[in-house]
Design a protein around this nucleic acid. Structure first.
Length: 838
DNA sequence: CTCTCCCT
């Protein structure tokens, strides 16, 4: 272990930790910190008989770090150095350095908040800012402050954000180390306009193959782009003697392995990868990196409770990490598809996961820990309020917390299981229903990667097909499963079964799958909409859609086990049929019976119904003869709130009045005014609309109401008086005609008028006692726009003479006087003007 | 037009 950059700072690290219980180490890749630091600190006096725990963000990294350290000591794994990751551990009573994945630490803390026997916790790769690492650090700081003032915490980070972490840890000292890697030459794209990622990437790969020797690793955002680049490369003549390998997480294991292995007989390799190759995998023999500059990233939307994927720009840190992959063994080269001038537009760091992710598990962990809110702990980044609130609501609906947000016994049972709280709820309830093993299988299938192989059925959304892989039925159907993943799912299910205390079972009843899944997703029970194949209304209130040709698309009830997408209607990626009786059985306490009124869209009549519903899903509706008028009135308000004022089909007068009132409020700067914007009127529906609904029983009658008059009386006499005097609806023109003032722009009332009608008028027409001049849109006799001005006198003096020349040619029968100020205003032709005089 | 990790 000689000659690593970290060696020169190791004594300093050890010495600082004698007096300080917290320390930050900044060391770039190649410094040797992951193996050097724990082994060196093992000799510290303060450690005594206690252990060192080191956190790694990935299982692969944990196993590798432990293996290297054991090698350096000349020992086997599990002696002085061991590791613990999910489903696998190599530790013994002698073990002094335990490398664990981040989630394991949370588990350790929940079991023993004092972390007995642990002297030092090291957070490796903290710059990645995973949710688990942020949570782990917050909890460790709490332990240090409240229970264990001798516990030492060392945060190791590759990038220069150490100061922020240091402040969080009571201004802990920061030690910086050099790194070591081979130089990587960066080549930027040209400033010229680019087309799209796949085209640009294929061109750049061709260019790099011609310019440079060695194999290429190209970073693309996702599977779609990878497939397109692959096709483009195959169609190019210059790229025939290379091997192209896609590489992404959903690729079957065998194919992933092929992409990572070296190619034989000196052929060149082009690997098209997602960000999986940024940290998780190392590919043999790469000299050239090509970075498209984008990645796909999950983003949790607390309002829908869904996570959707976004294609976003990479951060500077991530681009540097990608480039660094070219300089692992020899000097390398990195082509970036963006011009250097755009570097400033990239964020320095990626947003920490805690800001982007579903916080349900984290919140349950903290409530179980005894915290009642996020403010009770010290965070690197405070969890967003909206995600916290959504998590609390979901946990309440799963019965994990009570009405006062305290964890229940059920919640405690849930938090012991190593799964998302949704699935934990399903497991615990499944066990109560004697379907524990089936619940474990479902949870494992929903947690691990899809076992169904691509191509065996183009888009197979049915969860039951996956369940059948574990029964004798699988052979009959001809679906192909990835055997590695199948094994993985089985191991995971067995882990859950151990944690739950149930036995694997071969005789489970697959009819219960839908019901069990509905426990995990009580907000995603979907009911098929009437006359709409593939479109479902979800119990949580949103909509969801399946391909019309999907066999599930016409089933009456589904549980959506995987949905994504934004907006009102989500895309269903995986679902399972559920029967009405299963919904009734598993959701008895949330099914309500109520009287309500519904608008029959076809007949336009309000009908009374007695309704049995589970969330927003109607299980049963029975007609009631005489609907209650109060209920009709409330239903009308609900309709308008949901669909907006447009369902009232308001006429132009109504809209004009609204604009006029808004404009008057803005221009006269009234403080005691009424809000006539759509949002404002919707929030005051009770005041202005409700009093007129006493005899409305049909939709037609509703639309026939005179909304303009209704709004005028809502406005009241004083305000209406002020409005008419200062912001009139129409204005009189010199001809004696009147013209409507356009108030659409609240700050700028407009008068559209034919130029000739203003002859003789020297002052710009105005409102509000002359304080607001109207913006004039002057029109030709055929009402074509000629000129826009707020200064009529200036127009007559200057522009008019040019306009006149043009107009005389085009409208010879009209009157175009040389001096418009003394001319007679008119809306007519010359002939008709004379007629009128006689 | 589905990223990628992770949980006694």
């Amino acid at each position: 272990m000689t000659g690593l950059p970290i060696d020169s700072v190791l004594p300093q690290i050890a010495q600082k930790l004698v007096e300080n219980t917290s320390l930050v180490l900044q060391a770039p890749p190649g410094a040797g910190k992951t193996t050097g630091v724990p082994l060196h600190l093992l000799q510290s006096d303060w450690l005594g008989d206690n252990k060192i725990i080191m956190l790694e963000p990935r299982r692969l990294a944990a196993r590798a770090a432990a293996t290297r350290m054991a090698e350096l000591l000349g020992e086997d794994l599990g002696e002085t150095v061991g590791y613990r990751i999910r489903l696998e551990k190599k530790v013994s009573a002698r073990t002094r350095v335990e490398v664990v994945t981040e989630g394991i630490l949370t588990r350790m803390l929940q079991n023993d908040p004092e972390l007995s026997g642990v002297g030092l916790v090291i957070f490796d790769e903290f710059h990645e800012r995973s949710l688990q690492a942020d949570l782990g650090l917050a909890l460790c700081l709490e332990v240090q402050a409240a229970l264990r003032d001798d516990l030492r915490i060392l945060v190791m980070s590759a990038t220069l954000d150490g100061q922020a972490v240091s402040r969080l840890m009571d201004d802990a000292p920061v030690i910086t180390s050099e790194g070591r890697s081979f130089p990587v030459e960066i080549k930027y794209g040209k400033e010229t306009e680019r087309r799209n990622i796949p085209f640009d990437m294929a061109d750049k790969i061709e260019e790099a193959l011609a310019e440079e020797g060695g194999s290429i690793l190209a970073f693309l955002p996702g599977v779609g782009e990878i497939k397109r680049v692959e096709n483009l490369l195959l169609s190019k003549k210059t790229t025939t003697d290379i091997e192209v390998y896609p590489l992404y997480g959903d690729l079957p294991m065998a194919k992933q392995r092929k992409a990572i292995e070296p190619v034989g007989d000196g052929r060149r390799k082009v690997v098209l990868a997602t960000s999986i190759a940024e940290t998780s995998l190392t590919i043999d023999g790469i000299r050239i990196i090509i970075d498209c500059g984008f990645r796909r990233s999950p983003r949790f939307d607390p309002s829908s409770g869904l996570t959707r994927l976004e294609t976003i720009r990479v951060s500077r840190a991530s681009a540097d990490q990608r480039a660094g992959r070219a300089g692992r063994l020899e000097p390398g080269i990195c082509y970036r598809l963006w011009p250097e001038s755009q570097n400033g537009a990239l964020a320095l760091q990626d947003r920490p996961e805690i800001q982007e992710a579903d916080l349900c598990s984290l919140v349950l962990e903290l409530l179980n820990w005894g915290a009642t809110g996020p403010e009770e702990l010290s965070w690197c980044t405070v969890p967003p309020k909206s995600s916290w609130k959504q998590a609390i609501e979901l946990l309440r609906s799963l019965g994990a917390i009570d009405q006062s947000d305290h964890i229940t016994d059920h919640g405690k049972n849930m938090s012991r299981l190593p799964v998302h709280p949704r699935l934990a709820h399903m497991l615990v309830r499944g066990r109560e229903e004697n379907a524990g093993w089936l619940a474990c299988l479902i949870a494992a299938l929903l947690t691990e990667r899809d076992i169904l192989q691509e191509g065996s059925a183009k888009t197979q959304t049915n969860l039951l097909v996956r369940i059948d892989a574990f029964t004798s039925k699988s052979k009959e159907r001809g679906f192909k499963f990835d055997s590695y993943r199948l094994k993985q799912v089985k191991r995971t299910a067995e882990q859950y079964a151990r944690a739950l205390g149930v036995r694997p079972d071969t005789t489970f009843n697959t009819e219960h799958v839908g019901g069990l899944a509905s426990l995990a997703y009580p907000d995603r029970i979907g009911k098929l909409r009437k006359n709409a194949v593939g479109r479902f209304k979800l119990s949580g209130g949103k909509g969801a859609e399946l391909d019309e040709l999907d066999p599930l698309a016409s089933r009456p009830y589904l549980v959506m086990t995987n949905i994504g997408g934004a907006g009102a209607s989500a895309r269903v990626y995986q679902a399972i049929e559920v029967s009405e009786s299963q919904i009734r059985k598993f959701h008895a306490e949330s099914i309500v019976l109520e009287d309500r009124v519904r608008l029959d869209d076809l007949k336009g009549v309000f009908l009374g119904e007695e309704v049995e519903r589970c969330g927003e899903v109607i299980l049963k509706a029975t007609r009631v003869k005489e609907p209650d008028q109060e209920a009709i009135k409330q239903e009308i308000l609900t309709l308008v709130r949901g669909r907006g004022l447009t369902i009232l089909e308001p006429d132009a007068d109504f809209e004009h009045l609204c604009h006029r009132v808004i404009s008057a409020g803005a221009l006269a700067q009234k403080t005691d005014w009424l809000d006539f914007s759509e949002a404002g009127l919707i929030s005051s529906l009770e005041s202005w609309l409700l009093p007129y609904l006493d005899s409305v029983t049909t939709f037609k009658a509703l639309q026939a109401l005179d909304f303009k008059s209704i709004l005028l009386s809502f406005l009241g006499w004083d305000k209406r008086q002020f409005l008419d005097e200062n912001f009139p609806s129409r204005i009189e023109l010199p001809t004696g005609n009147t013209a409507r003032i356009n108030y659409v722009d609240p700050k700028l009332p407009i008068l559209e008028v034919r130029l000739q009608e203003l002859f003789g008028l020297s002052v710009t027409p105005s409102i509000f006692g002359g304080r607001i001049p109207l913006r004039l849109h002057l029109l030709s006799p055929a009402r074509r726009p000629l000129q826009v001005t707020s200064d009529l006198a200036g127009f007559w003096a200057n522009t008019y003479h040019e306009v006149k020349k043009d107009m005389k040619g085009r409208y010879p029968r009209h009157y175009w006087p040389d001096d418009p100020l003394i001319a007679e205003p008119t809306s007519k032709t010359k002939k008709n003007m004379n007629k009128a005089r006689r």
